[in-house]
C-alpha cells in the first residue's frame, strides 16, 4: 500500500467515527513504518477536516464530530510512545468561549466550542448569558490567548464591543485575540468594534483560530 493510500485509509477511518477502525488503521500505518507526525497530520487530521466539512453541509452531526474526535484521540494515544514527550498531548492554544450577558442562546456557541475542541484547542466554554467581566477573568485564569464572544441578537451584540473595551481598560487587549460570531455579527461589525476576526460558522471558527493562534 502506498503512503497516499495509507493516509486515505486513516482519513476514512476518522470519517467513519469508529474508534476501532481508527486504531486499526493507525496500527497498520505504524507497521508500515510511517512517522507518527505524518500519520497524524496527513491521515487523521485530514479526516477530521473532512468531518468538519460534512458537518457544515448537514451530512454529519455533532455527536458524530465528537465520536470522530474521540476516535482520533485514541489513534494519537497509540503513537504517543513514539513521539517526543507531551507532543501528542500538547494543545494548539487555549480559548475561552461563551455567549455574552443578556443572551441565552447556547447551541451555536456550543457547536463552535465542540469543533474547536475537536480541532485540538483547549476550550473553556463558560456558557451563555455570561457576565462580561467573566470572559476576562477566565482568560486570565487559564492564560487563554483567544476569547470567543457569541451573540444571537442585535440587542446583545453590543456586549461583544464592551468586552473589547474592558480588555483595553484593563491593559489586556494585546494579550488575547477576539473572535466574534452569531447571526447578527458580520465582518463589518468585527472591523467596527476592533475584533481580530469574525467567523460565520463553526468550521470557519476553527480555520480563523488556527490562522491567528497556530
Amino acid at each position: 500500500m502506498s503512503k497516499e493510500e495509507m493516509f486515505k485509509e486513516l482519513s476514512d477511518a476518522v470519517i467513519s467515527c469508529k474508534k476501532d477502525t481508527v486504531t486499526a488503521a493507525v496500527e497498520k500505518a505504524k507497521g508500515q513504518g510511517l512517522e507518527p507526525a505524518e500519520i497524524i497530520e496527513k491521515g487523521l487530521a485530514t479526516g477530521m477536516n473532512e468531518v468538519g466539512i460534512l458537518f457544515e453541509r448537514g451530512k454529519l452531526f455533532l455527536p458524530h464530530v465528537m465520536m470522530a474526535a474521540g476516535a482520533m484521540e485514541a489513534g494519537v494515544a497509540i503513537l504517543e510512545a513514539d513521539m517526543p514527550k507531551d507532543a501528542a498531548k500538547k494543545k494548539l492554544a487555549v480559548i475561552v468561549n461563551g455567549t455574552v450577558e443578556g443572551d441565552v442562546h447556547d447551541i451555536g456557541k456550543s457547536i463552535v466550542s465542540t469543533m474547536l475542541q475537536s480541532a485540538g484547542f483547549e476550550v473553556h466554554d463558560i456558557g451563555r448569558d455570561v457576565p462580561l467581566q467573566d470572559f476576562i477573568d477566565k482568560a486570565k485564569e487559564t492564560s487563554a490567548t483567544m476569547i470567543g464572544l457569541s451573540a444571537l441578537m442585535t440587542t446583545t451584540m453590543q456586549g461583544q464591543k464592551d468586552v473589547i473595551e474592558m480588555l483595553k481598560e484593563q491593559g489586556m487587549r494585546d494579550n488575547v485575540k477576539i473572535m466574534i460570531g452569531g447571526a447578527p455579527a458580520t465582518q463589518a461589525w468585527a472591523d467596527k468594534i476592533g475584533a481580530d476576526c469574525y467567523a460565520e460558522n463553526a468550521s470557519e471558527a476553527v480555520v480563523k483560530a488556527k490562522e491567528l493562534l497556530v
Partner: peptide
C-alpha cells in the same frame, strides 16, 4: 445539558 455532556465525550448520556 447535552452540550456540556457532548464536550465531555458523553455522547450516550447527551442523547
Amino acid at each position: 445539558n447535552p452540550g456540556d455532556l457532548m464536550k465531555a465525550f458523553k455522547i450516550e448520556e447527551a442523547r
